Computed example of a mutant assay.
Amino acid sequence: MTMVTSTAPGSPPGCAERPARILVVDDETSLAELLTLTLSYEGWEVRNAPDGTTALATAAVFTPDAVLLDMMLPDMEGTEVLRRLRAEWPGLPVVFLTARDSAEDRAAGLLAGADAYVTKPFGLDDIVTRLRVVLGATEPAALITAGDLELSVRDRSVRRGGVMVALSGPEFEVLHRLMAEPGATVSAADLGAHLPGGHPGVLVLCLTSLRRKLGVEISSAPEGYRLATR
């Protein structure tokens, strides 16, 4: 069972541990019930919502640690729900669930800021694994620094000069890999392997966005990419 130490995403550490809270947002009643049962069996606290409006209202009182979010909801697009959730909780992990499986849709979902993208039909074990990853269960708590950049593995946050910078899930993964080996050149294949979905265009877009958002130098060469650490 994945335990967390905060009462809401982004809360300071030091609180008593509790089971992770998962919000399931899907208008397919049978699927939502199956996911709720499966995740509850893992020991997590689970709530579900059939549409975006209900999801936002539920999140306000439930303060989830991660969200499973259908991209196609009856009242609004999943990307809009994601935008509103992240406006309240910038570091909240979100996994998209969708029947759309084209490369373009996958890239659009990830670039909207989702931490992972799972197409229907899917295995329940895959969902549990994805949630453990975004909740940080597979990585130890860590703070990685490079110059005035700080990356927290635990709450998936990034700061530059002490100021929080909001990154999408793919952007965070690319930056994490670049900062893990300061000054080293990381191949495009290595960076791409850490991106959910594997769409080659996502890496280029992530690098461009990181340069713009962080104002950092990420040099490119035939052998890969390197983050300047000065």
Rank of each mutant, 00 (worst) to 15 (best):
G224Y: 01
D148R: 11
R159S: 13
A141H: 10
A107D: 04
D125A: 15
S209C: 04
Y225T: 00
E217H: 09
R106Y: 03
L191W: 01
P90W: 10
V163C: 09
A114N: 04
R211K: 13
G113Q: 02
V118L: 15
K120L: 12
S187E: 00
S152H: 14
S157P: 10
L135F: 07
A142M: 10
G198V: 08
A108Q: 12
A99W: 04
G113N: 05
V128N: 05
L167I: 08
V118K: 06
T119M: 09
T98M: 07
E150L: 12
I144N: 08
G113V: 04
T138Y: 12
G162R: 05
A180V: 07
G183E: 04
S102K: 07
E139M: 12
E139V: 14
A87N: 10
V94P: 02
S157A: 13
V153H: 11
L195M: 03
V94Q: 03
P200T: 00
A87E: 15
A114K: 02
L97S: 00
T98E: 06
F172N: 06
G161L: 06
G201D: 11
R156K: 15
G123D: 14
F122D: 06
A142D: 14
S187C: 02
A146R: 09
V165Y: 07
L167Y: 05
L210Y: 02
G183C: 04
P121M: 12
D125V: 11
V118T: 09
A99E: 02
T208Y: 05
L110I: 09
E139P: 05
A193Q: 10
A108C: 01
A108R: 15
P140H: 08
I218G: 02
G136I: 07
G91E: 13
A87R: 13
T119R: 07
A108N: 10
A166Q: 15
R159M: 11
I127E: 06
T185L: 01
V163A: 12
T229G: 03
T185P: 00
I127L: 12
D105S: 13
I144C: 10
A188K: 01
L149R: 04
T98Q: 03
A141V: 13
P182F: 08
D101R: 13
P182N: 11
L205M: 12
S102G: 09
P93L: 09
V186S: 03
E171K: 02
Y117H: 10
D105W: 12
A116S: 15
D115V: 05
R160S: 10
V158C: 11
A184S: 11
V204T: 13
D148M: 04
S168D: 09
A142R: 14
A99C: 07
K213S: 10
S209I: 04
T208W: 04
G136A: 08
F122L: 08
V94S: 00
A107H: 05
G224Q: 00
A107F: 03
V174A: 05
L131E: 08
A221R: 08
L124E: 05
M164E: 15
T185N: 00
G215D: 05
R100G: 00
P200V: 01
V133I: 15
D148N: 14
A107S: 13
D101K: 09
L205C: 04
A142H: 12
L131A: 04
T138A: 11
V153F: 11
L203I: 01
S220D: 02
T208P: 01
Y117S: 01
D148F: 03
R154E: 15
H199M: 08
G183D: 05
L195K: 03
G147D: 08
E181Q: 13
P200Q: 03
F122H: 07
